[in-house]
């Protein structure tokens, strides 16, 4: 089922995907075991003349063990999932590694306005460049994305980069990713933002190092 996942091109994507697989195997096993038990009981214990039901209340300690032991196992699995998940979450969302590439994605009904800081590396200066719905980044470099919204809540979704972050008006939210493969990938909005939400869609282009230099020279020819 997880083969439906879009190709992963994020440095941290493997960690997210392997968690997904881990949960998939755990829940898959739980699914098979419980549904099988259910079906087997339904077949074995269907009504048969002359065979009354057993009187089992499940209130005695010995009987309750049948559920308490599996519960202890479930609790252990739960805690280990939390234990495995927390570092991944912290890596992706909590701390942003040092980065040389900064872009600001400013959402508005119904476009991604991408602000590039230009050669001075600073946003809000004269050499900034703005492009609608086109995000250009270099491969294998940490990209810091500064997210802002002009009106309502949007959500920047980069399926291949396993990146999703809501974009709120009235605050700046920083996110990051590192793409490991060049190419062009989808960049939809994932949060209902009005009648144009459907179709609010851009592209992220991941350039090789040389391509990226060429693209930069093309955009800022004077520098």
């Amino acid at each position: 089922m997880l083969s439906w996942l879009p190709e992963n091109i994020a440095s941290y994507g493997d960690k997210i995907d392997s968690l997904m697989y881990l949960v998939y195997y755990i829940t898959g096993t739980a699914f098979v075991v419980t549904e099988l038990a259910l079906i087997i009981f339904l077949i074995l214990y269907r009504r048969k003349p002359g065979r009354p039901a057993a009187y089992i209340t499940g209130n005695r300690a010995r009987q309750a063990l049948w559920t308490l032991v599996p519960l202890a196992v479930i609790l252990a699995i739960d805690l280990s999932l939390d234990f495995k998940g927390t570092p991944v979450w912290n890596e992706v969302k909590a701390a942003i590694p040092p980065s040389n590439v900064l872009v600001q994605v400013q959402a508005k009904q119904f476009n991604w306005e991408v602000h590039y800081p230009g050669p001075d590396g600073k946003l809000g200066t004269a050499d900034d460049l703005v492009m609608d719905n086109q995000l250009h980044v270099p491969v294998n470099q940490v990209v810091k994305v500064r997210l802002k919204s002009q009106d309502v809540i949007h959500s920047l979704f980069l399926p291949n980069l396993r990146f999703k972050q809501d974009v709120l008006p009235g605050r700046e939210i920083d996110g990051w990713f590192k793409a490991t493969k060049t190419g062009t990938y989808p960049m939809p909005c994932a949060e209902l933002c009005g009648f144009g939400h459907s179709g609010m869609y851009g592209q992220i282009t991941v350039h090789s190092a040389e391509d990226y230099q060429a693209w930069v020279r093309q955009q800022w020819p004077s520098s």
Binding site: L38, F41, Y45, R46, A54, I56, G58
Partner: peptide, 9 residues
């Protein structure tokens, strides 16, 4: 599920 164990369904 345990309720169904040795029941008469």
């Amino acid at each position: 599920i345990a309720t169904l164990f040795r029941a008469s369904i």
